[in-house]
Design a protein around this nucleic acid. Sequence first.
DNA 1: TTGAAAGCGCTAACAC
DNA 2: GTGTTAGCGCTTTCAA
Lengths: 345, 345
Amino acid sequence: MQNRRASLSDVAKALQLSPSTVSRALAGHKDVSEATKERVRLLADELHYQPNQLAAALRRGRSNTLGVLVPHITGHFFPKVLDGIAVEASKAGFSVMIFQSNEDSKQEKKNIELLMNSQVEGILVSLANTTTDFSHFELARQQNVPLVFFDRVMEDFRGSNVSAVILDDYLGAYQLVSHLIEQGCTRIAHLTGLRHLNIHRNRHQGYRDALTAHGLEINEDYVAQCEMNQYGGAQAITEMLKLPAPPDAVFASNDLAAAGAMQVIKAHGLRVPHDVAVAGFSNEAFTTLTEPMLTTVDQGCETMGISAVRLLQKMLNPNPDRLAQPRNVVLKPKLIIRESSLRRP
Amino acid sequence: MQNRRASLSDVAKALQLSPSTVSRALAGHKDVSEATKERVRLLADELHYQPNQLAAALRRGRSNTLGVLVPHITGHFFPKVLDGIAVEASKAGFSVMIFQSNEDSKQEKKNIELLMNSQVEGILVSLANTTTDFSHFELARQQNVPLVFFDRVMEDFRGSNVSAVILDDYLGAYQLVSHLIEQGCTRIAHLTGLRHLNIHRNRHQGYRDALTAHGLEINEDYVAQCEMNQYGGAQAITEMLKLPAPPDAVFASNDLAAAGAMQVIKAHGLRVPHDVAVAGFSNEAFTTLTEPMLTTVDQGCETMGISAVRLLQKMLNPNPDRLAQPRNVVLKPKLIIRESSLRRP
DNA sequence: TTGAAAGCGCTAACAC
DNA sequence: GTGTTAGCGCTTTCAA
């Protein structure tokens, strides 16, 4: 039953034409007669002819495929960004090959190699949180395959064919903490993730600077590094509530940790936001389902995906007149104020 | 700066060997001398040689790539399944090419063609909810590319190279509704999605049969078709609460709709679960963050992805002795009972 | 307007 | 053990 697929030359033979003419006809080349084009199209349809991309790509040296490498494919953030990437890539006629590193630097290296072997025309990548050695990206650089980092970026990169899209995490955190201060909070805690990742480092710095700018002291007792999930947030806040002067606000670097903390706070009989205000980061879907609804920072995830693809396109088609070097894009976060932090309505 | 990548014959030339020997050496073929292998490996490393998959695939007639087509890449369910697929595919040495149909049948068709053109060795697909015409899948069937449907399946398919992985949605719904009845609920509402999709039809049937089996009448006033999101659930329940005898339990075909309904119920001053019990379907992450926590049905999403890939592998390597025809896999759901439905602790 | 020929980079028969 | 040869299916000069 092995129904071999029809090839270009099958179509050519049946029509007593040469493969080249058929190729041109299907490509819509203008110097093929309308009559021939029509004959070709008709038979191609009938035979369910589908061009072999592999062969075309090999010949052309262009695969029309983009590679994407994310730490994981689950959760809220990455799927949204992937959505943006997929939509924008599709518009530009690219297929997308997706891999996940599972936060493992070894996997990341392997996946970069796989993508390179698949002759992708560019790679969009968000780093695994274990990655501290970046040599595997040299491969892409050397072979001149454009690289766009998004969200979790390699900060000390340099070179002509690397760029990045990030959110202004610092600004988001700064605004959020300023908001908490304006609500009358003075003992503001911060639950942070691994700080060798730019996102967490920047959010933390935004926290510190907002406090300082408003004349508040930084108390290291109010800063905890924890797993950025429900359980981690719960654990961290449990400790802090034992302090002689427990925090009157919690800013967690992501929403899950914030939600976990909020549950513990309420379980202690404390009211949110009146005793302790709570805020997260990411604007996940569930933030309107907690009680009270969670104040957070929206990251414009799809925008990030779209920007990344557009940046890549610019790198693939460099504008010759103005010196359109790869640039870095910094997206603006958006503060989403909800009940969990609103003490003064 | 265009650093052309090193090819097999570059390595061969530099070593005064033939390309075939180099190819065999790198493939670990046993009839190449250890000495040669070593020389080859060393130089390949040094030149950062990366095999061109496109060329290899074209030559071999095997692309080592699987195609995946999902309605959308966001939300809870599909990313989880994709995770399972990605992990299992990677184990088997496959790369994965992912497309989303955006619930649009036209897109679906286009994407299937794209996948076929990319010479994927098999396709995993979950249908768009607008798909009623299945002719675009004929393409794959004709060319003998195995097709595995998951979750949202084409039900009237037949043929040698199509199979499916589904959850026993009927059973999940049946068990869940039985549980509500055991909790003393008698006026159980159902919020359902478009019933031409197998998942919603089956969940609804499970609901009806559970009621009947327990001697309860089916009241169509308690059945609403709505958008399966927070807003849709909220709207639907708002109407029902106006009934002379409003429901004392709500089973929504997904968690978001359940959560939306729960918010409205509480806003009406009714207690969950004592006045109205609430249950959803899918066990999304946020179901432990609502108040009370939401009773739901776990779908084992990763398992579905893993099963789908395994099924595909069996279809690619048919077992010659026993008549290992493609089979359908039906996964068992798992009831997750939480506070939102627990009236009798 | 069409055809002939070459070749993208790799693998696999078949030789030696 | 290693080399020679042919060819996967397509595109693209170049020539007619």
